[in-house]
Design a protein around this nucleic acid. Structure first.
Length: 312
DNA sequence: AGTCCTTTACTGCGATGGTC
DNA sequence: GACCATCGCAGTAAAGGACT
């Protein structure tokens, strides 16, 4: 497969009226999407926010791109210190879109409150998971209020180094152009399975805690993860509980293509074709019900522990 | 059938941020 | 400052497919 760089430090590569400037790695550069410095540049990595697959679909490769969760940031004057981080316009706008999708009735922005990286205690282990966001709706007549929100815009790609090396070669050009930067890079591809594998634990543990507590869980995920997930649950025909007592919501996030591209970030929106309101327990049962009896897996050629071939 | 290449899955490592 | 949870990076094994 192949991908191309879609955003470099929050600037889309598919326009030509203004060239993107490479930045000095291992320096302090503000992230366009959160209140804080770009963590990739800090680490000496190329600041790639998202890539585009051959199909044109966006795959987010930075944890902070969709909606960053850190509560603190490095102090500008004293790098050792951490100070509170605010919500950027971008975060607030994504969270508002999500709020408008999941909440019912009358409410305004001032009624919606969030807690980032909220600890979710695990009684059995004594440890803590972290919820990306806990969101509440404090409007007087709110019918729906307590929500645990997990964000996963994308994840990793295979052969990340290939992408990094390509971007590095762009940065070293005498006159770097956006056209060079957005060229297709052979081989690397999105790894949906990895993203999903890491989500499963969260589904099972956090989801259960929230469910027991009477709250609702919302997973805001990129469209590729949504589709990957949907394939393994679609046959179950989960009931649409949007107007009823849902406890789990899957929410796809996609590129907003309504406006012509301009210099800056790629706009994102809630994907109205990829929304599923359902029941947490039913959903988990569907996940664990995958596959059927396959007796053949216990037949065929085996190797005995003393090295002999055994056919069964 | 053998070789080469791509895709998929898994894992160790390390950086980071948060908590106590 | 120690400890822990999370997650991205990168390497590699295994599986699958194309081609000779």
């Amino acid at each position: 497969m192949a991908v191309s760089v879609a955003e470099y430090l929050g600037q889309r590569t598919d326009i030509d009226d203004k060239n993107i400037n490479p930045v000095q790695l291992r320096s302090q550069i503000p992230c366009p999407f959160m209140d804080g410095n770009c963590s990739k540049v800090t680490k000496g990595l190329q600041p790639i926010c998202s890539v585009r697959k051959k199909t044109g679909t966006i795959w987010i490769v930075c944890e902070h791109r969709l909606c960053a969760t850190p509560k603190t940031k490095q102090d500008t004057t004293n790098p050792k210190k951490r100070v509170p981080a605010g919500l950027t316009e971008h975060q607030s706008s994504i969270l508002w879109e999500i709020a408008k999708t999941v909440y019912r009735g009358e409410f305004e922005k001032e009624h919606i409150v969030v807690n980032r990286e909220a600890p979710v205690p695990i009684e059995e282990t004594g440890g803590n998971y972290k919820a990306d966001y806990i969101m509440r709706n404090l409007a007087p007549a709110a019918k729906i209020d307590e929500i645990l929100l997990e964000m996963q815009g994308g994840g990793e790609t295979s052969e990340t180094k290939k992408i990094s090396d390509y971007v590095a070669s762009w940065a070293e050009l005498e006159a770097p152009t956006n056209e060079f930067l957005r060229q297709e890079i052979a081989k690397p591809n999105s790894i949906e399975t990895n993203a999903w594998r890491r989500q499963q634990e969260q589904f099972l543990v956090k989801g259960n805690i929230v469910n027991q507590t009477g709250g609702k869980i919302v997973f805001a995920i990129g469209e590729l993860i949504y589709d990957y997930l949907y394939r393994r649950i679609s046959r179950a025909n989960l009931r649409d509980l949007r107007e009823h007592n849902w406890t789990l919501c899957l929410l796809g996030i996609r590129e907003n293509k309504t406006e012509a591209p301009t210099f800056g970030p790629i706009p994102l929106e809630v994907d109205d074709k990829r929304i599923l309101f359902t029941n947490y327990s039913t959903f988990v049962r569907t996940l664990t019900d995958q596959g059927g009896p396959e007796p053949a897996i216990f037949l065929g050629e085996f190797l005995s522990l003393d090295g002999e071939k055994v056919n069964i």
